[in-house]
């Protein structure tokens, strides 16, 4: 489904590379977890894959279902079925969640020659999707993320994902900021959404999340590269030992590879 090859990226106009040769392959039906120290490039990877205009791909390519999407705009990638749950969801005052979702849902449907939903049909659909993560319908009428608590913002990201039903979702630290109950609810929701036809990439700092959602693969990112990939046991190892051992191995401070 997604194939990232030797991806190098920097902030547009800057020389310094943030991503320094990422390779990652994700097949449908899989759940991946990406861990790694602060500043190692996890969010940047998610944003570059989603087409954030602030970054420039200087080398390598991103293939989605065989198509090179490296040069596509963010909305075009969304039409293909790519989704990003933001680490810091953005507030957009004046536009309600409902308006955004209807616009998004119907735009994506239109681009894929699927049928659009009229307001009433869409309302029914929203009600049903609210249940996936047990969200109150009053959130539909509120401006996007505006004045939401940290945890509510994260839940709202998962709700949007539940509505848009993407093929591939990057979920950037969706677990951070959730209370214990919310974490459970959100994890359950993600498990419900996950299926044989889609794929999910969880970016997280905590093994805790992986108790609820079992990843097929765990990757460790350091200094702009994926330095280690293994099964779910890797998360437990890291929880135990931290990144120190890996850091030594990969000499993150120097130029040695």
């Amino acid at each position: 489904m997604l194939e990232i090859k030797n991806l190098h990226a920097s902030v547009e106009g800057e020389d310094e590379q943030i991503l320094k040769g990422v390779n990652l392959t994700i097949n449908k039906g899989e759940i991946h977890a990406i861990m790694g120290p602060n500043g190692s490039g996890k969010s940047t990877l998610a944003k570059v894959v989603s087409g954030h205009p602030e970054y420039e791909v200087t080398e390598g390519e991103i293939l989605f279902e065989g198509e090179d999407v490296t040069e596509l705009d963010a909305d075009e990638r969304a039409h293909l079925g790519m989704f990003l749950a933001f680490q810091y969801p953005i507030e957009v005052p004046g536009i309600t969640n409902r308006t955004l979702l209807r616009e998004s849902y119907n735009t994506i449907a239109r681009e894929n020659d699927r049928e659009e939903l009229d307001p009433l049909e869409f309302d029914d659909y929203l009600k049903e999707r609210l249940e996936v993560i047990d969200m109150k319908d009053e959130f539909l009428e509120r401006s996007i993320n505006t004045g939401f608590s940290g945890g509510e913002k994260k839940k709202n990201e998962v709700f949007q994902m539940a509505v848009l039903n993407p093929k591939l979702a990057f979920m950037d630290e969706t677990d951070s900021g959730l209370d214990i109950d919310a974490l459970k609810i959100v994890s359950d929701g993600i498990n419900k959404i996950a299926g044989p036809e889609n794929a999910i990439v969880l970016i997280t700092h905590y093994q805790r999340l992986l108790n609820y959602i079992t990843p097929d693969y765990v990757h460790v990112m350091m200094n702009g590269k994926i330095v280690k990939s293994a099964g779910k046991e890797l998360a437990l190892e890291l929880e135990d030992q931290g990144y120190e051992q890996l850091e030594k191995e990969f000499s993150v401070n120097g130029e040695a590879q």
Partner: peptide, 20 residues
């Protein structure tokens, strides 16, 4: 970017923000 990531074109995104 947030709105575009949800599939909305750049022009519609700006228009939505201003209209809102």
């Amino acid at each position: 970017f947030y709105l575009m990531q949800r599939g909305i074109s750049e022009q519609d995104a700006i228009s939505m923000i201003i209209n809102g």
